[in-house]
Each structure stands twice: as structure tokens, then as C-alpha cells.
């Protein structure tokens, strides 16, 4: 049953993608904030259908911590869910992502229309420079930058190595850093079609003031908050 519901959910997601990608390309002449408002409806639809079809809902705590000034979101990465939810919780944003995602037919074109900072993960130091240069340019335009510091999705209960790119961008720009924790991996496991019914909790942490701090310190503070908060979130036992 869970599998069937999940397949219906993905059918909706694919259909919505076929609608939104041409829309995203048509809207390209419009300002980014306007396009984001339209294109994030794709995420709103998918989260709505996730609740309606799979019974998977979510709650957000700490929304008062989001500053008015555009900042850098350092977010735990356990599934694709957080890439959707962040679009509904935070203002207009771009994502730091591996460039391979843009090569996916149709979906990748839609993604490419939203000004992502696409990096070559194998490039090391050059990838870090891409994050700082690209992030700086978008923050200056008042657009938030989403970074998953672990670089890739990590199973619940596990911790990836926190990469320095986000902290470097913050130290360089002095923009506020907002850490985000959640427990999506228990309900939307990576490399699995099945969506477990339940309620994901997303917790937004207090702003980390990056002014006068080193990149290493910013990354460490974010990691400490994210990991200690993730450890407190509900960890439902896997289904029998």
C-alpha cells in the first residue's frame, strides 16, 4: 500500500514537472523573485500531494529566526524532501548543487532556469571558489543561498563530513547563516520509493553572525547546532 501510494505520488510529481519546466523557460525574462514565487508552487504541489496521498505531513519550528536580510542556509541533507520544503519556508533562494543534476532531461532544464550554483564536485578548490563567487553574486541581489554542507544525502543517525564552502561564503560576505535540522530521512529514505506516513519536523536555528568569524568557526557552530538538534528530533523505528 505504501509503495502504491508512493508511485501515485511520483506520477503527480512527474506530471507537475512536465507543466512547470516549460513554464520556467517561458518566464525567464521576468525577475528572479517573481519566477521563484511561481516555480516554488511546484514544491508546494508536491508537498501537498505527499500529505494527501502518502499521509506524510511536516511541521516547522523556529521560523522567527529567519532574518529579513538574505543569508546562507546550511541544512542537514537526508532526502529530496528538504529541497522542496526549504522553498516554502524561506524567501527566494538558489541551491548549490552538483552540475550532473542539470544534465537530467527536462527536470534538469527546469532546475537550470532557477540560477543554481552548479559545481563540479571533483574539482576541489575550484568548486569552493565557484561557491564563493556564485554565492556572493546572488546574496548581493538579495537571494538566499542553500548549501548542504555534508555535500550529499546522509542516512538518519549518520553525520557526513561538513564541507567548508558555506562557511567560506559566510566569512567572505558577512551574511547571516541560518542552520536547519530535520528528520526527513526516516520518512523519505534515500534510494527508496517508499514514503512513510507521519510528520517530518524541520527546526530552524538561531542566526549565526558570520561577521568577525573565521570560515572554520562558522562551519563548526552550524555543525554543532544542526547535529545536536537532529539528535533531539523524533527518530521513529523503521517499519516492521
Amino acid at each position: 500500500m505504501v509503495l502504491l501510494r508512493s508511485l501515485v505520488f511520483y506520477l503527480g510529481l512527474a506530471t507537475a514537472t512536465l507543466v512547470f519546466v516549460p513554464l520556467g523557460l517561458l518566464l525567464l525574462p521576468l525577475p528572479f523573485a517573481t519566477r521563484f514565487r511561481v516555480m516554488s508552487r511546484w514544491s508546494a504541489f508536491n508537498l501537498w500531494s505527499l500529505k494527501a496521498i502518502c499521509g506524510l505531513d511536516y511541521q516547522v519550528t523556529g521560523i522567527e529566526n529567519i532574518p529579513r536580510q538574505a543569508g546562507i542556509i546550511l541544512c542537514k541533507h537526508q532526502s529530496a524532501w528538504e529541497t522542496l520544503a526549504l522553498q516554502l519556508v524561506f524567501p527566494a533562494q538558489v541551491w548549490v548543487l552538483k552540475r550532473e543534476l542539470l544534465w537530467i532531461p527536462i527536470y534538469g532544464w527546469g532546475l537550470a532556469s532557477m540560477a543554481p550554483i552548479a559545481i563540479d564536485r571533483a574539482a576541489g578548490m575550484r568548486a569552493l571558489r565557484q561557491i564563493v563567487a556564485g554565492g556572493k553574486e546572488r546574496l548581493a541581489r538579495g537571494i538566499w543561498v542553500v548549501i548542504f554542507p555534508e555535500g550529499t544525502r546522509v542516512a538518519p543517525g549518520k553525520r557526513g563530513r561538513y564541507q567548508p564552502g558555506g562557511g567560506m561564503l559566510a566569512a567572505e560576505t558577512g551574511c547571516p547563516v541560518v542552520p536547519v535540522a530535520h528528520n526527513s530521512g526516516y520518512f523519505w529514505p534515500r534510494n527508496s520509493l517508499r514514503k512513510r506516513p507521519g510528520r517530518i519536523t524541520m527546526a530552524i536555528g538561531p542566526v549565526i553572525d558570520s561577521r568577525g568569524r573565521s570560515a572554520e568557526e562558522i562551519t563548526r557552530l552550524a555543525e554543532e547546532w544542526i547535529e545536536s538538534t537532529v539528535a533531539q528530533l523524533p527518530a521513529p523505528a523503521p517499519p516492521a
Binding site: Q59, V60, T61, G62, I63, E64, T201
Partner: peptide
């Protein structure tokens, strides 16, 4: 205690 505070202003 199984409680959650959604926001603190």
C-alpha cells in the same frame, strides 16, 4: 515531555 514550541519571539 513530548512537547514542541513552534517559535520564540
Amino acid at each position: 515531555y513530548g512537547g514542541v514550541i513552534e517559535a520564540i519571539f
